[in-house]
Simulated assay, not measured.
Amino acid sequence: MKIGLVGSYGSPAQMVRLAREAEQHGWDGFFTWDGVSLDEPGMDSIPTYDPFAILAAVATATERLTLGALVFAPPRHRPWELAQSALTVDHLSGGRLVLPVGLGVTIDRAFTSVHGQPSAMRDRAELLDDVLAWLERSWTGEPFTFEGEHVSTGTFRFPQPPVRGRIPVWPVAVWDPDRPPLKSLNRALRWDGMVPQVRGVDPEQGEASPEQLATLVSWIAAHHDATRGPFDIVHQGRFSADRGKAREQATAVAEAGVTWWIESWWDPEVATPDFLLERARQTP
């Protein structure tokens, strides 16, 4: 199992320093987040930055870390601009970029504050599928046109493909073992991994149990087409400050079949730049 760290809050310079420290102390990945500045309670004092600009800077300051965001919200991005940004970071990093993706939070004024943006979750889901399909077409290096549910374009061509031929995509998917598979699970199976959102567990307040993750891993093993290559299960967690307990947490989740633990702290009163830097210096 690989272990990554989210740079939740801080200036761009602090994020680059955090990533360098994480690499020096043995972490496997560094992740930022994809948000916009909104004038609403709880968000009006939190500055947001372009995730691809942050990752481009981190790419030039590191050599080994997998890079991404938890999570990118493609329905807020124009596909051709998203493709260009992702391709730039992919090449700067030597092919270390991954794309965890989702619909955006349920109530997201970044959609409702702009006329013409889809606000209904179903529309955002269709747009997410369009954007991902568009991205994949752009990686072929061949000319293409596109006609989707919400995206329609004339001829585009990105003559330089990603370093490794494609960029891994990890969609957010809902897991509920007591209900039939949801559309988000079927979406994830078409790609390279998933960021599970276990029904009833708020990732900002708690985390899925090893038992819940093990049932998900078993379901994926039964339904994933192995000929498509490896499939990542990406768990957002928070290690205990006690090293022994943290080792037990990691062991339990790894034995459940998870391939990535992403250390994720979202409370801005806790996840200060100094707190995150201290976490990065604790060799995982």
Results as ranks from 00 to 15, higher is better:
Ala250Phe: 07
Gly68Cys: 07
Ala110Trp: 00
Pro273Asn: 07
Leu132Trp: 04
Asn186Arg: 14
His91Ser: 09
Glu204Thr: 15
Arg179Asn: 09
Leu5Asn: 00
Gln117Pro: 05
Asp50Tyr: 00
Asp34Asn: 06
Gln236Arg: 12
Arg187Phe: 06
Asn186Ile: 12
Asp90Gly: 10
Glu81His: 13
Ala69Tyr: 01
Thr88Val: 11
His77Pro: 05
Gly229Tyr: 05
Glu269Trp: 03
Ala214Thr: 12
Leu87Ile: 14
Trp219Arg: 10
His91Cys: 11
Ala57Gln: 06
Glu126Ser: 08
Ala13Lys: 01
Lys2Arg: 09
Leu276Tyr: 04
Ala252Asp: 10
Ala241Asn: 06
Ser218Val: 11
Asp108Leu: 12
Gly237Pro: 01
Arg124Leu: 09
Gly26His: 04
Gly148Ile: 09
Met121His: 03
Thr259Gly: 10
Gly165Phe: 04
Gln160Lys: 14
Glu63Tyr: 01
Asp242Ser: 13
Ala56Ile: 09
Trp261Lys: 05
Gly68Met: 03
Trp27Lys: 03
Thr259Val: 12
Thr88Cys: 12
Ile54Val: 13
Ser113Val: 07
Val198Ile: 15
Val253Lys: 00
Asp28Ala: 11
Ala53Gly: 06
Gln236Leu: 15
Val258Pro: 02
Gly95Pro: 08
Arg109Gln: 11
Gln236Thr: 15
Pro159Cys: 07
Leu277Tyr: 04
Gly237Met: 04
Thr251Arg: 13
Leu135Asp: 05
Leu277Val: 13
Arg281Lys: 13
Leu182Ile: 10
Thr32Lys: 01
Gln117Asn: 13
Ile54His: 04
Val105Lys: 04
Ala241Phe: 03
Ala73Pro: 04
Asp176Tyr: 04
Glu211Gly: 14
Thr66Met: 11
Asp34Thr: 07
Asp39Gly: 13
Ala280Ser: 03
Ser119Gln: 06
Thr106Met: 06
Asp178Thr: 14
Gly94Trp: 03
Gly7Val: 01
Phe275Ile: 14
Phe111Cys: 12
Leu277Arg: 09
Ala241Ser: 13
Pro268Asp: 09
Gly42Thr: 06
Gly257Phe: 02
Arg166Phe: 11
Pro74Met: 10
Arg238Val: 15
Pro210Leu: 11
Pro230Arg: 08
Pro41Gly: 08
Met121Phe: 05
Ala59Trp: 02
Ser119Asn: 07
Ala110Asp: 12
Phe156Tyr: 15
Ala73Met: 05
Leu185Met: 12
Leu128Asn: 08
Asp39Trp: 02
Glu126Val: 15
